[in-house]
Simulated scan of single mutants.
Amino acid sequence: MNTIQSVKIINIPKVHDERGYLAVIEKDTIPFPIKRVYYLYDVPNDSFRGGHAHKNQESIIIALSGSFEVIVDDGKRKQRIMLNKPNQGLYIPIQIWREIENFSSGAVCLVLASTNYDENEYIREYSKFCNQLLG
């Protein structure tokens, strides 16, 4: 079973010259092959996203622009993590509940996922999430 300690910041390699920065995500940068990429934008700052866990999907969440907070929860402990650097990603393994909130104006949240979309793979009720951890 994964715990809060399994969640970690991953530094994305970057190159800098007088034209700015270039961040590069290649196969050795993250701990899984990417099957799906999606992003959230124009999220009102009083809204939240997430509110689920995954049975089989690993994720990397990156603040491409602006900032937001990710609350991760292993059923015993919660941790709030501020993301605001486009060269850092938050690795979230399977069976970790996540919520994303406090979006700044213009924030863009990129998610790299290890699986294709499958609604049956989501755990969307917190009580079911906690029950699965016990059983």
Rank of each mutant, 00 (worst) to 15 (best):
Q79I: 08
F68L: 07
E58N: 13
E58I: 05
R80A: 13
R80Q: 11
K78V: 12
I71N: 14
Q57A: 15
N56Y: 10
G66H: 05
S65Q: 14
D73M: 10
G66C: 09
I60S: 08
D73L: 13
S59F: 07
S65C: 10
I71S: 14
Q57D: 10
R80M: 09
I60C: 10
K78G: 02
I61S: 12
I60A: 07
R80I: 13
I60T: 03
M82V: 09
N84G: 14
D73A: 08
D74E: 09
I62D: 00
S67L: 04
I71K: 15
V72F: 01
D74C: 07
E69I: 15
K55W: 03
I81R: 03
G75Y: 02
M82P: 06
S67A: 15
G66N: 05
R77W: 04
S59E: 15
S65H: 11
K55T: 07
D74T: 03
I62C: 03
R77M: 12
G75H: 02
S65F: 12
I81T: 06
K55S: 04
N84I: 08
Q57N: 07
E69A: 08
I62Q: 00
I81M: 09
N56T: 14
K55C: 06
K76Q: 13
I62H: 00
I71Q: 15
K55E: 05
L64C: 09
G66D: 05
G66Y: 02
D73I: 11
D74P: 02
Q57H: 02
F68E: 01
K76G: 08
